[in-house]
Computed example of a mutant assay.
Amino acid sequence: MNTPDTRQREHGWLQIFVAWMIALASSLGALFIGEVMGQTPCLLCWYQRAFMFPLALVLAVAAIRADRDAWIYGLPLSASGLSIALYHVLLYYGFISQAVVPCGQGPSCTDAKMTIFDVLPLPVLSVLAFAAISILLFAARRKNAP
C-alpha cells in the first residue's frame, strides 16, 4: 500500500540515490580524466577527490539501506569538498592572488588545460557536483517526528 509515509520514505531514498549517482559519476570521471586521458590532477584536485571518493562509497551504502540519515555523515564530506572546490574556482578565475596559490610542485591549479572538451573548467564541474550532492542530502534529511 502506498501511504504518505511510504511515499516520503521513497522520496528521501530517491534523493540519496541521485546524490550517490552524482558522486559515482564524479569519481569515475576524475579517474577517467587522470588515468585514461593522462591529465595529472593538481593539489586542490587531489583534495577534492579525497572528499568525493568516500562520498561515492558512503552514499552507495546509504542508498542500499534507504538511510535518510545519510546527510549526517555525507553532508560534512560534501560541504568540505565544496569549500575546496569553491576556493579552486576562485583561484582558477584569478579572484585569489597567485601568492596564495597552494600548488608548488606538479600541475598548476590555474592551468588553462584544466577543462573538459576545452570548454568547461574541471573546478566548476566539481563545485556543481558537490553543491548538487549537498542540496540533495539536505533535502533528504529526516524530518523530526512530533
Rank of each mutant, 00 (worst) to 15 (best):
P121M: 06
I16E: 03
L128F: 08
Y87K: 00
V61C: 07
R49D: 12
W13Q: 14
A60F: 14
Q105T: 11
G34I: 06
D111H: 05
Q39F: 11
Q105N: 14
A145Y: 13
Y93M: 07
A19L: 04
N144Q: 15
I84H: 00
Y73A: 01
W71P: 00
L77K: 03
H88K: 08
A60Q: 07
A79R: 01
W20C: 13
V124S: 05
I116P: 00
P76E: 09
A129N: 04
D111T: 03
S26L: 07
Y87W: 12
G29R: 00
I133R: 02
G94E: 04
G34C: 05
V124A: 13
F17M: 10
V101G: 01
Q105H: 11
I135D: 01
P4D: 11
Q105R: 10
F32L: 13
A129T: 05
L14Y: 09
A132G: 13
F32G: 09
L86T: 11
A30T: 08
A23G: 06
G74Q: 00
A129S: 15
F95L: 13
R68Q: 13
Y87M: 10
D111R: 00
F32P: 01
S134Y: 01
E10A: 14
R142K: 15
L137W: 01
R9L: 13
P41R: 04
G34H: 12
G94Y: 07
P54T: 06
L14A: 15
I84V: 15
R9W: 06
R141N: 07
Q105W: 11
L86Q: 04
A139P: 02
C109N: 07
A99P: 02
A79T: 10
C103F: 00
G38V: 05
F17E: 04
Q39C: 00
G104A: 10
S27I: 01
S78T: 07
Q8M: 12
G81A: 09
R141E: 02
P4L: 10
I72K: 15
A56C: 11
S83C: 13
A129P: 01
D67R: 10
I72N: 06
V89I: 11
G104Y: 02
A85R: 03
C103S: 08
S27Y: 08
F138Y: 12
A62L: 04
M37P: 03
L14T: 10
H11N: 14
L57S: 14
Q48K: 11
A60Y: 02
Y93A: 05
K143I: 13
